[in-house]
Computed example of a mutant assay.
Amino acid sequence: MTNSTPFTQFILDAYLDVGLLKYLVFITVMCLYIVIIVSNVLLIVVICVNRSLHEPMYFFLCSLFVNELLGSTAVFPLLLTEILRDIHTIPVSFCFLQIFSIYSYANIELCILAAMSYDRYLSICHPLQYHTNMTSTKVAVLIALTWGFPVVEVGVMVSLSAPLHLCGNVIPKVYCDNYYIVKLACSDITVNNFYGIVYTVIIICSVLSVIIYSYSKILKVCFSGSKQTRHKAVSTCTPHIVSLLNFCFGCCFEIFQSRFNMTYLPTVLRVFLSLYFLTCQPLFSPLIYGLNLTKIRNICKSIFCVNRMFYNLSVSAELGSNRHRWLISASVLCCSVTP
Rank of each mutant, 00 (worst) to 15 (best):
S4P: 00
Q9G: 00
F10S: 03
V18L: 07
C31K: 06
I34C: 08
I37P: 06
V41C: 12
L42W: 13
V49K: 12
S52K: 06
P56A: 00
L61S: 01
L70G: 07
V75R: 07
F76P: 05
I87Q: 12
C95T: 04
S101Y: 06
S101V: 04
I108A: 08
C111L: 13
Y118M: 08
L128D: 15
Q129L: 13
T135N: 01
V139M: 00
T146C: 15
F149W: 13
F149Y: 14
V154L: 01
K173P: 00
C176H: 04
D177F: 02
D177C: 11
K183E: 14
G196Q: 10
S209D: 01
V210Q: 04
V210C: 09
I211A: 03
Y213N: 05
S216E: 03
I218R: 14
C222M: 15
S224C: 04
A233R: 11
S235I: 15
P239F: 06
C251A: 14
E254M: 15
I255P: 02
F256Y: 05
Q257L: 05
S258L: 08
F260E: 06
T279H: 09
S285V: 11
K301V: 12
V306E: 14
M309G: 00
N312I: 08
S316D: 03
R323G: 04
S329I: 03
L333F: 08
S336M: 14
